[in-house]
Design a protein around this nucleic acid. Structure first.
Lengths: 231, 231
DNA sequence: ACGATCCTTCGGCGAACGCCGAACCGTCCT
DNA sequence: AGGACGGTTCGGCGTTCGCCGAAGGATCGT
C-alpha cells in the first residue's frame, strides 16, 4: 500500500501550477537560474526557492551551485520523457492570438525546436520521416533502428549505437510532436543527432528559448545526408 | 503558460495517497465498485465517492452504473501505461515481512499476474523471452514484432496484427516488470495474448487480486507453442 | 570596503483539500 | 410492503499548502 504513497508524492511535485510551469520550462534541456525561473513562473524568488527545493528533493531536478547562482535542470532524460508523456494527454490547444511578437515566436517554434535533448517541430519530424523513407529507421510497431541506420550513424558521427551502453534509456523512441501531431525521433539516437546538429552549426538557437533555426550549412547537410530540403 | 495548468491538474489527480491507491488497484484492468475501492483505500464511502468523481471528471477513469452499483475502471490503456511509467521511477521496495499469508500472496504475484491487460511476473517475462528466443519478437532497440511473429499470431489466434487498427496504442511495448526487474510484453499484442491465456483457461485468476495461476492446459500450451516449461 | 545581486530562511495569512458522520435516495431481496 | 444495502450529498472540522514580504547570508563587481 505504500507504493500509493510514493506515487502520490511524485505526482504532488507536479500538482502545482507553478512547479509544473518550472518543469515545462526546463524541458528545453538547459540549466536555468532560480531567479529566471521565478520570473518565468511569475512568483517571488522566495517562493521559487521553496519549489526548487521540493523538486530537487523529489529527484526530478538536479542543481549545481556556481558562485551566487543556483543552476537547476531536469535530473535525467527519463524525467523529460515523463513530462512529455503526461503532456501528451491534452488536446491541442486552440491558437491563442498573442500579438505579432507571440505569433512569430510560435511560428519559429513550429519550424524547429529542441524537445529536451532532441529535435522537434517540422525540422524534427522531417528528419525522422526522411530516415524512415531511406530505410534507416523502421516504424512497423514502434521505432527501431535498421542495420542501414546503424552504419549511417557510424559514418556520420563515428558512434556505434549497438555497442553496450549504460542505463536503460532506449536507443530510439517515438515522441509525439505537439505542433505537428506526428511522432519525431527521441531516445539516445535522437539526442546524438541533436548534439551533431548543434555542434556542427547546422542549427543555432534563436534567442533564449527552445526554438532553433536551420543554417545554410544545415540545409546543405540535410540535402547531402537525407536528401531533403525544407521551406 | 496554461499548459502548466493542465499538467498540474492532471498530476493533482494522482497527488493524493487515497486516489493513487485507487488507481493502482484499478491497474488490474477490472472494474471495481465504489465500496470495494473505499474498503481497499481505507476511507469512508462518502470520501471515496468524492475521489471517484474527480478521477472520472479528469478523464482517468470511466464509470458504468449497474443497478445500485457503480463500477469504475481505468479509462483506457494509456492511463495504465502512464501509471506504470510513473511507478517505474521508484526503487524496488525492501521486502516487507507481512506474515505467512502475505508472503504466499506475494509469491503468487511474483509467479504470475496481470499488469492491466497483459501478463506479468515470471510468467509474463518467460513468455516474452521465449518469443524473443524463437525470433517472434525483436528487441534490438525497443520491442518490435517480426514477420515470423506476425504469422505466429495469425496461426494462434487468427488475428493479423498488421491490419489497420484504430487508436494510437502501440502494437508491442516493453513494460518494466516490478518483481522481475526485466521487461515483459505489453501493448496490443500483450493484451491479445493475455486474453487468449484467460479465455482458453491456460491461466486462471487466484482469488480477487491480480495474481494468476498457470493451469495444466496452460503448461501444455506453453510447451507446444513456445517450447518452455515453468517451475 | 562598499553596494548590488542572487538566494535563502522565517513568520504569517488565506485558500484549498481530505476526511468524516448524518441524512437521504434508489435498488434489490424477501 | 418492509428492510437491507450501495451510493450520494451536505456541512463542518482540521490540516496542508502556496504565497508574500522582511530580514539575513553569500558572492560578485568596483
Amino acid at each position: 500500500m505504500t507504493s500509493a504513497a510514493d506515487l502520490a508524492a511524485l505526482a504532488a511535485l507536479l500538482a502545482d501550477e507553478t512547479r509544473a510551469g518550472i518543469c515545462l520550462a526546463l524541458l528545453d534541456g538547459r540549466a536555468w537560474t532560480a531567479s529566471e525561473l521565478a520570473a518565468h513562473a511569475g512568483v517571488a524568488p522566495s517562493t521559487a526557492t521553496g519549489h526548487l527545493h521540493r523538486l530537487v528533493e523529489g529527484g526530478l531536478l538536479v542543481q549545481r551551485r556556481q558562485g551566487r547562482h543556483r543552476y537547476v535542470q531536469l535530473a535525467d532524460p527519463s524525467v523529460a520523457q515523463l513530462l512529455e508523456d503526461l503532456s501528451a494527454r491534452f488536446e491541442p490547444r486552440p491558437v491563442r492570438t498573442g500579438g505579432l511578437r507571440a505569433a512569430t515566436a510560435s511560428a519559429a517554434l513550429r519550424r524547429g525546436r529542441t524537445c529536451y535533448d532532441h529535435l522537434a517541430g517540422r525540422l524534427g519530424v522531417a528528419v525522422t520521416e526522411a530516415m524512415i523513407g531511406r530505410g534507416l529507421l523502421d516504424c512497423g510497431s514502434g521505432f527501431a533502428l535498421t542495420p542501414a541506420g546503424r552504419s549511417w550513424l557510424i559514418d556520420l558521427i563515428g558512434w556505434d549505437p549497438t555497442q553496450p551502453r549504460p542505463g536503460r534509456r532506449p536507443l530510439v523512441r517515438g515522441c509525439l510532436d505537439w505542433t505537428e501531431r506526428r511522432e519525431h525521433l527521441g531516445g539516445l539516437v535522437g539526442a546524438k543527432l541533436c548534439e551533431l546538429f548543434l555542434g556542427n552549426g547546422w542549427v543555432v538557437r534563436i534567442g533564449s528559448g527552445r526554438a532553433v533555426r536551420l543554417t545554410a550549412a544545415g540545409h546543405a547537410a540535410l540535402r547531402d545526408q537525407l536528401g531533403i530540403t525544407l521551406d
